[in-house]
């Protein structure tokens, strides 16, 4: 069992050791993370669960290189993130990570296509022509090629979240991180989003999401529970639900809408 763990370490995309995050509020300290040790392997599809305030977002922000831990080690794709400066972290966010937020975080008054192009703008290796093409491909893979010139306020919540996912995957990241991606969406749209994640995961992209809903976690293949800044449970899902199949059964217009 231990040896198997060691063996898996080598293809761990995310590996943390005793990750601690303490916020200082005046002379009060908030221990958001009290020591997280986790290995997330390539092609894992992880759901992080836990009560409000248990440290899920804090953890996601740190592994997404948006924030830095107070203590502990973090290896992303074999790179020691703890030793990096601001510019190197920006480079990691650009090339290795795709982040999806609960509140979409699209640039307002900027078309879907241009929003998806945004990470490519900060990637000097890509020409303007490739940029357009890659962004269109990403939009197509989330089923939104027909909406490329719509502005965020002309899109539904589900569509906005799909634009955000397209933006997250446009630079071919090794991992997609999504903090409550379905938190603002209705049931059917949530399943649509999970369908996209499952398909990306099939292609070999590691996906980590945070969710409060066990129903959503059931679409992933590994459920990690947080409590008070520590990992409480870490379970494999034997038979994940398949979003693609279920979508065929849910009518396009759900009961909630007809009421």
């Amino acid at each position: 069992m231990e040896q198997e763990e060691e063996g898996n370490m080598t293809d761990a995309i995310i590996s943390t050791q005793h990750l601690v995050k303490t916020y200082k509020m005046g002379d009060m300290e908030v221990h958001a993370l009290r020591g997280i040790d986790i290995d997330i392997r390539k092609s894992d599809f992880v759901a992080i669960m836990g009560k409000s305030g248990s440290g899920k977002s804090t953890f996601m922000n740190i592994i997404g290189c948006l924030d830095v831990p107070t203590r502990g080690e973090y290896l992303l794709d074999g790179l020691d993130v703890g030793k990096m400066n601001r510019d190197e972290l920006a480079h990691l966010r650009n090339r290795k990570i795709g982040f999806v937020f609960q509140s979409f975080n699209l640039l307002s008054r900027t078309s879907a296509l241009e929003n998806v192009e945004l990470p490519l703008m900060y990637n000097n290796k890509i020409s303007s022509h490739d940029m357009r093409e890659k962004a269109m491909n990403a939009l197509e893979s989330v089923g939104l090629s027909g909406r490329s010139h719509h502005l965020p306020n002309q899109l539904s919540g589900g569509e906005q979240q799909r634009v955000a996912i397209a933006r997250a995957l446009v630079n071919d990241p090794v991992v997609i991180l999504a903090d409550e991606p379905t938190g603002n969406l209705d049931t059917r749209t949530s399943v649509e989003v999970m369908d996209i994640f499952q398909k990306l995961n099939k292609k070999g992209i590691t996906v980590v999401i945070v969710t409060h809903e066990p129903d959503i976690a059931a679409y992933t293949n590994r459920n990690v529970s947080f409590r008070d800044g520590r990992i409480l449970k870490d379970l494999q899902v034997e038979h994940p639900r398949i979003a693609g199949e279920e979508l065929l059964l849910i009518p396009a217009i759900s009961e909630e809408d007809t009421i």
Binding site: G64, D87, H91, F99, N171
Partner: peptide, 16 residues
């Protein structure tokens, strides 16, 4: 500020 956050989130460096 939020726009700056989004840009940094997808890889903009300070100098960008």
């Amino acid at each position: 500020t939020r726009e700056i956050g989004i840009r940094m989130g997808v890889g903009a460096r300070g100098r960008d």
